[in-house]
């Protein structure tokens, strides 16, 4: 039973990022709300893409950004709003919304997933938080139909809420064994570097 629990609910989070060197200006706070991909399942927390992004931005101009990693392994879109509220104390300026992959992998009703994500987006908008929506694709084995609907969900959300959309967070990583850990799903350190590259231009825009 223990095994089952740990298998099903290895839900992980890394948040405590060492306080960065503060510059003269208050840093822009970026909150990553995501699942195991964000949490960096299978790699050291310093090697997960949110930390890499913080490092990268602060390298050029120290104290530019402060990142909060709100990734929880196994999480779905359903708890999104509650989780966003928990982080409001940190007063994030930018929200990177990277939820939905687990909904798709578990084959849940995508209408509900879409509704959940909408609620998160509306709440963030209400608080004037800039939003970057990270899209996902499902593995090919999930079938053309379902994969198509899943992909469409992100496109529709971006259009309806006029958001910036990263079409595929795992672009160049998903399905490439050399960029994933042995389970074939979660990116390894190299994979996280690629994700960082993918996200950088979008974040630059928002900053």
């Amino acid at each position: 039973m223990k095994r089952l629990l740990s298998y099903l609910f290895i839900l992980i989070i890394f948040t405590s990022i060492e306080s960065t060197v503060f510059g003269n200006k208050a840093p822009t706070k970026i909150l990553f709300l995501g699942d195991s991909l964000t949490a960096g399942y299978g790699v050291s927390k310093k090697m997960a893409f949110p930390a890499l992004i913080e490092k990268q931005f602060n390298k050029k101009s120290p104290g530019r950004v402060r990142v909060f990693n709100g990734g929880i392994s196994g999480s779905t879109t359903a708890g999104g709003v509650a989780r966003l509220k928990w982080y409001l104390k940190r007063k994030p300026d930018i929200l990177v919304l990277a939820l939905g992959a687990n909904d798709g992998l578990r084959g849940v009703n995508l209408n509900a997933s879409k509704k959940n994500l909408s609620l998160v987006i509306l709440k963030a908008k209400e608080l004037k938080i800039k939003i970057l929506l990270a899209g996902m694709l499902l593995p090919l084995n999930y079938g053309k139909n379902y994969r198509g609907r899943f992909k469409k969900m992100f496109i529709e959300l971006a259009r309806e809420h006029q958001l910036k959309l990263v079409p595929f967070l795992l672009k160049g990583v998903g399905g490439e064994p050399k960029f994933n850990i042995e389970d074939g799903i979660h990116p390894n350190e190299e994979g996280h570097k690629i994700i960082t590259k993918t996200l950088t231009p979008y974040l630059e825009d928002l900053l």
Binding site: R3, L4, P139, L140, G174, G184
Partner: peptide, 30 residues
């Protein structure tokens, strides 16, 4: 067992059958 497949119902098919589905391609998790 507890592990693989508990989350979903199982369908058994032949090796030829799974090829027919064309679900195994680059980018599939198999």
């Amino acid at each position: 067992t507890f592990q693989m497949g508990s989350i979903a119902s199982r369908i058994y098919l032949s090796q030829e059958g799974i090829k027919r589905t064309e679900l195994i391609q680059k980018g599939s998790t198999v």
